[in-house]
Lab assay of single mutants.
Amino acid sequence: QIFVKTLTGKTITLEVEPSDTIENVKAKIQDKEGIPPDQQRLIFAGKQLEDGRTLSDYNIQKESTLHLVL
């Protein structure tokens, strides 16, 4: 699982696999929060994550925290 922290300070927990794409993660966030993926920007280690890449591409491991910017 990974954590996604929103600007409001809320933390969302997501069940993911390293092979999941960023697009996939955004879809999971939409399921939980109702935020359309095209409004979501995910930041990890100061980098904006691209939809077509996977979590493992960015070396995002379990218990990692991503930041969600709208």
Rank of each mutant, 00 (worst) to 15 (best):
Q1C: 13
Q1D: 05
Q1K: 13
Q1R: 14
Q1V: 15
I2C: 03
I2E: 00
I2T: 02
I2P: 00
F3C: 05
F3K: 06
F3N: 05
V4H: 01
V4N: 01
V4A: 03
K5Q: 10
K5Y: 07
K5M: 14
K5H: 10
K5C: 15
K5T: 14
T6N: 06
T6L: 15
T6A: 05
T6Y: 13
L7A: 13
L7E: 14
L7K: 10
L7W: 15
T8K: 11
T8E: 13
T8Q: 11
G9M: 04
G9N: 06
G9A: 04
G9F: 04
G9T: 03
K10E: 08
K10R: 12
K10H: 12
T11M: 12
T11W: 08
T11L: 13
T11F: 10
T11G: 03
T11D: 04
T11H: 07
T11I: 15
I12W: 06
I12D: 00
I12F: 13
I12H: 03
T13I: 13
T13V: 12
T13H: 07
T13P: 06
T13D: 04
T13C: 11
T13A: 09
T13N: 06
L14G: 00
L14Y: 02
L14W: 01
L14N: 00
L14I: 13
E15C: 15
E15D: 14
E15T: 12
E15G: 07
V16S: 04
V16H: 05
V16Y: 15
V16I: 10
V16Q: 02
V16A: 08
E17R: 06
E17S: 12
E17P: 03
E17I: 10
E17W: 10
E17N: 13
P18T: 09
P18H: 07
P18Q: 09
P18W: 13
S19C: 14
S19H: 12
S19M: 10
S19W: 12
S19I: 07
S19Y: 12
D20I: 05
D20T: 09
T21F: 08
T21E: 03
T21R: 08
I22F: 03
I22W: 02
I22G: 02
I22A: 02
E23M: 15
E23G: 13
E23K: 11
N24K: 12
N24C: 15
N24T: 13
N24G: 09
N24P: 00
V25W: 01
V25G: 00
V25H: 00
V25K: 00
V25F: 03
K26V: 02
K26G: 01
K26E: 01
A27C: 13
A27F: 13
A27L: 13
A27H: 13
A27T: 11
A27Y: 14
K28Y: 07
K28H: 05
K28L: 10
K28F: 06
I29T: 01
I29G: 00
I29Q: 00
I29Y: 02
I29M: 03
Q30L: 10
Q30R: 14
D31L: 14
D31I: 13
D31R: 12
K32G: 04
K32R: 10
K32V: 12
K32Y: 08
E33C: 15
E33N: 07
E33W: 14
E33Q: 07
G34V: 02
G34R: 06
G34T: 03
G34Y: 04
G34P: 02
G34I: 02
G34K: 06
I35R: 03
I35S: 04
I35Q: 03
I35F: 11
I35P: 04
I35Y: 13
P36T: 06
P36F: 06
P36D: 07
P36L: 07
P36R: 09
P36A: 10
P37Q: 11
P37E: 07
P37K: 14
P37N: 07
P37F: 14
P37G: 08
D38R: 11
D38G: 12
D38S: 13
D38V: 09
Q39P: 02
Q39L: 11
Q39D: 07
Q39Y: 09
Q40S: 04
Q40K: 02
Q40H: 04
Q40V: 09
R41Y: 11
R41M: 12
R41E: 08
R41P: 01
L42F: 03
L42K: 00
L42C: 01
L42S: 00
L42R: 00
L42V: 03
L42Y: 03
I43P: 00
I43K: 06
I43C: 15
I43D: 04
I43T: 10
F44Y: 15
F44S: 03
F44I: 03
F44W: 09
F44R: 03
A45F: 10
A45E: 12
A45V: 06
A45I: 06
A45S: 09
A45K: 15
A45G: 13
A45R: 13
A45W: 08
A45M: 15
G46N: 07
G46C: 10
G46Y: 05
G46D: 06
G46H: 06
K47T: 12
K47F: 11
K47V: 14
K47G: 06
Q48D: 13
Q48L: 14
Q48N: 10
Q48H: 12
L49A: 02
L49K: 00
L49N: 00
E50N: 07
E50K: 07
E50T: 06
E50Y: 07
E50W: 06
E50L: 09
D51S: 08
D51L: 06
D51A: 07
D51G: 07
D51Q: 05
D51Y: 05
G52M: 09
G52F: 12
G52E: 10
G52L: 08
G52V: 07
R53F: 12
R53P: 04
R53V: 07
R53S: 07
R53C: 12
R53M: 15
T54C: 08
T54E: 03
T54V: 06
T54L: 10
L55A: 02
L55P: 01
L55T: 02
L55F: 03
L55S: 01
S56L: 11
S56I: 09
S56T: 08
S56F: 11
S56H: 11
D57T: 05
D57H: 13
D57G: 04
D57S: 14
D57V: 04
D57C: 04
Y58K: 01
Y58R: 01
Y58H: 03
Y58G: 01
Y58W: 03
N59E: 07
N59L: 07
N59C: 11
N59S: 09
N59Y: 07
N59T: 05
N59V: 04
I60S: 01
I60E: 01
I60Y: 02
Q61L: 11
Q61I: 13
Q61D: 09
Q61K: 12
Q61R: 09
Q61M: 10
Q61S: 11
Q61A: 11
K62N: 15
K62E: 12
E63N: 13
E63K: 08
E63Q: 12
E63R: 07
E63H: 14
S64F: 09
S64N: 08
S64T: 07
S64R: 04
T65N: 04
T65E: 07
T65C: 09
T65R: 05
T65L: 10
T65K: 05
L66E: 01
L66F: 04
L66M: 05
H67M: 13
H67Q: 11
H67Y: 15
H67P: 01
H67L: 14
L68N: 01
L68M: 08
L68Q: 02
L68I: 05
V69I: 12
V69Q: 10
V69C: 13
L70M: 11
L70V: 12
L70F: 10
L70G: 08
L70I: 12
L70N: 09
